[in-house]
Write a protein that binds this DNA or RNA. Structure first.
Lengths: 246, 246
DNA sequence: GATCATAGTCGTCTCCCTGACGATAAACAC
DNA sequence: GTGTTTATCGTCAGGGAGACGACTATGATC
């Protein structure tokens, strides 16, 4: 039988779901929207939507990201035109358990977005409201997310946690110009650990291409003025920044 | 408009494609099948097929793997019942460019399988024939694979190359019992570099839980008899085995 | 059987990175 | 001024990795 015989394969709906992560007040947070309809009406879920005809998967994810946050995404390959002005966006994984949506066969291509701290989210599309929630709360059993979104969120968080180890991706959580201390607080929030400020400073300033001085100082964190940096061209950290054991 | 209105989203076909990697005679090889029909008739492609109704994505990949190679897959989480008797199988990424298949909208969830060296592949399903080909040849520009399979293969190879750095996954390329030298030749083939046998031996035997002695020796590689090992329970290598720079 | 080639295994030495932590600097709050 | 906070520089010890010497145990070759 021909593999292209239309009767030979079942039709699927394809969606993109977004795990949008940011760091707000020392906590790793993700964007969730309240579902306005069945199933899981009234429950919190990850933002997402259907992939349109003629639309690439990454383009659909970028479109959803703009709709929900106003953030423009830039490809991981390209250097961001204005670092910090857009979000990092990458494909995470695909979820297609037959019963994950009770109404039809839906395959969801989850994407992971990392963004600097933002003002309140815009509620868009089919959501009554939207908010940033600490992932710590969501991954607890209190009020699980709709569908398999709890699993998707967990996978996205784990991806982010491991990826900042060996890449410069943590700068995606920072504004265009940032201090070493701000970057350190990103690592601390994502990993949920405390890092030694002196060793961290030595590591990040000593890695060629990771940070480039932006030429000013700031005192927005209090204390002694800190040098401002931009993200350098290096994307891979070698040797990596190792996550502490516990 | 309701997101579940059937007219609100286009139907997709969903397939799984497999990057099956193995090490044959010091080279990293992948399984390819010759296409029997249009498009790309007569060209080599990755094995794959449609996801069936009610079938999970991973199950579809496992089914295709059995059909093409006879290998049973085991989940990355579980320890293999008989190490080396099955293949490691994990989801790789999803490819859904609108024109990747000229005839219809197809989203392909690519999977990566790592297997020990096998006898000649069985040609199955819609393929005239199948063979193991060194990835080095396929990634050159000589005769590109059908569809976007060249990109999928490249992504799969890169995943394998980076993952054996920080996990014990290289043992998935080995038979149930293997020597340190055989494991080293796996790393050398996957990375395409030469490793110092003494430092490699110190590293892998010194990492707790990576290897457990199997209790015998073998001389199948020539030279002094070597101790046989099995894969230990450890899945994460910390500190990782770093890929040499060049 | 002596010699050689091949592979495996054990040690040593040095360098670099890391973690732990002392000390100093430059702002602000009172 | 004094205390507090944060940033930044330095020092020191320990561990892992690269480079490489030395020895061992097999089969192949003469």
């Amino acid at each position: 039988m021909s593999p292209y015989d239309p009767s030979a394969f079942p039709p699927f709906a394809v969606t993109v779901d977004l795990v949008v992560l940011t760091v707000r007040s020392h906590a790793l947070c993700t964007l969730i929207v309240r579902r306005g309809e069945q199933p899981y009406q009234g429950r919190w879920a990850l933002p997402g939507g259907f992939v349109r005809e003629g639309e690439d998967l990454g383009a659909a994810a970028a479109r959803e990201l703009v709709e929900e946050t106003g953030l423009r995404a830039h490809d991981p390959g390209d250097p961001p035109p204005l670092p910090g002005n857009g979000a990092h966006l990458e494909q995470l994984a695909t979820y297609g358990a037959p019963a994950r949506d009770p109404r039809m066969r839906v395959v969801s291509v989850a994407h992971l977005a990392l963004a600097p701290d933002l003002p309140a989210p815009r509620a868009g599309g089919d959501a009554n409201s939207a908010r940033w929630a600490p992932v710590e709360e969501l991954l607890g059993e209190a009020e699980p997310l709709a569908f398999d979104h709890g699993q998707i969120l967990a996978d996205g968080v784990e991806r982010a946690r491991s990826k900042i180890e060996y890449s410069s991706l943590a700068t995606a959580f920072c504004p265009p110009e940032f201090t070493v201390g701000e970057l350190r607080r990103v690592y601390e929030a994502v990993w949920g650990v405390a890092l030694d400020p002196r060793n961290f400073h030595r590591k990040v300033t000593g890695t060629p291409g990771f940070l480039v001085p932006a030429g000013g100082t700031t005192t927005r964190q209090g204390g002694r003025p800190a040098q401002l940096f931009r993200a350098g061209g290096a994307t891979l950290l070698n040797p990596p920044m190792l996550r502490p054991e516990v």
